[in-house]
Simulated assay, not measured.
Amino acid sequence: MPAAEPHDLVRTELDRVARRWRDLPVDRALAAAPGLRRLAQELADETAARQGRPVRELPDLGPAVLLDQLLVTCFDATEAGVEQAGLAQRLSTLRSKLTQA
């Protein structure tokens, strides 16, 4: 069986994070929200730096849209050339933290 492509690894980890996030009880999601927000902001910052744009803080729209913000920033980061295997690993780490939340 061939090794998974890096893009496939990111998609797989994003799907896993999304499933885990949606399954969290509200109190645990609220406790885990800062970690999800932190990764989304890091990706937004890295994308801006790669594109020569100023860094801007993501709007705090609450935990209900954090997953959407992460999905968008992951897409933007991959389009900007952020290293895929490293991104997949960061998502895996986030998922592990969600599991512990």
Results as ranks from 00 to 15, higher is better:
residue 15 D to P: 00
residue 22 R to V: 00
residue 46 E to P: 02
residue 34 P to A: 07
residue 25 P to S: 05
residue 28 R to N: 08
residue 34 P to L: 09
residue 20 R to S: 11
residue 31 A to L: 15
residue 36 L to N: 03
residue 41 Q to D: 06
residue 27 D to V: 12
residue 35 G to Y: 11
residue 45 D to W: 10
residue 49 A to I: 11
residue 41 Q to I: 12
residue 18 A to Y: 01
residue 53 R to C: 02
residue 17 V to L: 00
residue 22 R to L: 12
residue 49 A to R: 15
residue 21 W to C: 02
residue 41 Q to R: 06
residue 43 L to D: 01
residue 18 A to V: 06
residue 20 R to P: 04
residue 52 G to E: 12
residue 40 A to F: 05
residue 36 L to Y: 04
residue 22 R to K: 13
residue 42 E to G: 05
residue 26 V to Y: 11
residue 44 A to G: 00
residue 39 L to K: 00
residue 30 L to A: 14
residue 27 D to F: 09
residue 47 T to V: 08
residue 53 R to F: 08
residue 47 T to L: 10
residue 43 L to T: 05
residue 33 A to L: 13
residue 33 A to V: 11
residue 33 A to E: 15
residue 41 Q to K: 02
residue 38 R to C: 06
residue 25 P to K: 08
residue 55 V to E: 15
residue 52 G to F: 13
residue 32 A to C: 14
residue 31 A to N: 07
residue 17 V to M: 04
residue 16 R to G: 11
residue 46 E to W: 13
residue 41 Q to S: 04
residue 50 R to P: 06
residue 15 D to S: 10
residue 40 A to P: 06
residue 44 A to Q: 00
residue 47 T to N: 04
residue 40 A to R: 04
residue 15 D to Y: 01
residue 20 R to Y: 02
residue 47 T to F: 09
residue 27 D to M: 09
residue 15 D to Q: 11
residue 32 A to S: 14
residue 54 P to H: 09
residue 42 E to C: 05
residue 23 D to M: 08
residue 29 A to N: 03
residue 35 G to N: 11
residue 28 R to S: 10
residue 51 Q to C: 12
residue 16 R to K: 11
residue 53 R to P: 01
residue 21 W to T: 04
residue 48 A to Q: 00
residue 39 L to G: 04
residue 37 R to G: 09
residue 17 V to E: 00
residue 46 E to V: 12
residue 16 R to A: 14
residue 40 A to M: 02
residue 24 L to D: 10
residue 16 R to P: 00
residue 47 T to G: 03
residue 19 R to S: 09
residue 29 A to Q: 15
residue 39 L to E: 03
residue 18 A to H: 06
residue 48 A to E: 02
residue 36 L to F: 01
residue 17 V to W: 01
residue 50 R to A: 12
residue 40 A to V: 01
residue 22 R to T: 06
residue 38 R to I: 07
residue 40 A to Q: 06
residue 52 G to M: 10
residue 49 A to S: 12
residue 48 A to C: 00
residue 21 W to A: 05
residue 50 R to F: 08
residue 53 R to L: 15
residue 15 D to R: 10
residue 50 R to I: 07
residue 47 T to Y: 02
residue 41 Q to C: 08
residue 33 A to D: 13
residue 42 E to A: 12
residue 32 A to G: 10
residue 24 L to S: 09
residue 49 A to V: 14
residue 28 R to W: 07
residue 55 V to S: 10
residue 41 Q to G: 04
residue 22 R to N: 13
residue 23 D to F: 03
residue 47 T to A: 04
residue 35 G to A: 12
residue 30 L to I: 12
residue 38 R to L: 14
residue 35 G to P: 05
residue 39 L to C: 04
residue 27 D to G: 00
residue 26 V to G: 06
residue 41 Q to W: 06
residue 48 A to P: 02
residue 53 R to Q: 15
residue 17 V to C: 02
residue 27 D to E: 13
residue 30 L to E: 15
residue 45 D to I: 02
residue 44 A to E: 05
residue 15 D to V: 04
residue 16 R to T: 10
residue 49 A to E: 15
residue 27 D to S: 08
residue 52 G to V: 12
residue 36 L to W: 07
residue 19 R to V: 07
residue 38 R to P: 01
residue 28 R to Y: 03
residue 27 D to A: 12
residue 19 R to M: 06
residue 52 G to W: 13
residue 26 V to N: 05
